[in-house]
């Protein structure tokens, strides 16, 4: 298969690295969560790609079809999406509380506030 034929995986790798970079490099707590979401989205695409069977149709039994895509990874990723939503919700809730407690959502400013007793 040509390099281009695996373009889904290139997208996965790109999103994964981009998301991971945002999580590590940004000081803003909201942006970190956005990065985390991009990172997780890459994994969703990875699973969905794995489940696709070439020439296969949606996994609903019909007379004209013999090849079906594998539904299991899709179902797994539904669960992972739910987990991701829960994580995002909790993360954002924590950011709101941090904003109330410190008055800022920049990591370096919070660190500076913690230096002072």
């Amino acid at each position: 298969m040509s390099l281009f034929g695996l373009y889904n995986y290139w997208i996965v790798v790109f999103l994964m690295m981009a998301g991971f970079y945002v999580v590590v490099a940004h000081e803003n707590l909201i942006k970190k969560i956005v990065g985390l979401n991009v990172f997780q989205a890459s994994v969703f695409i990875l699973y969905i790609t794995v489940g696709k069977v070439q020439g296969g149709t949606a996994p609903i039994i019909g007379e004209n079809f013999t090849i079906y895509s594998n539904p299991l990874p899709h179902v797994l990723i539904l669960t992972a999406i739910v987990v991701g939503v829960a994580t995002t919700a909790l993360g954002l809730a924590l950011v709101i509380r941090i904003k109330e407690a410190y008055g800022t959502i920049e990591d370096d400013e919070i660190a500076a506030l913690e230096e002072e007793p």
């Binding site: 707590l29 990172f39 909790l90 993360g91 924590l94 509380r97 407690a101 410190y102």
Partner: peptide, 20 residues
């Protein structure tokens, strides 16, 4: 302590990276 929030946030980020 308000630092508990920060600690929980940090754990959330690292824990989610680990889980992912």
């Amino acid at each position: 302590d308000r630092r508990a929030l920060k600690a929980a946030y940090q754990y959330l980020i690292l824990g989610t990276i680990g889980a992912t």
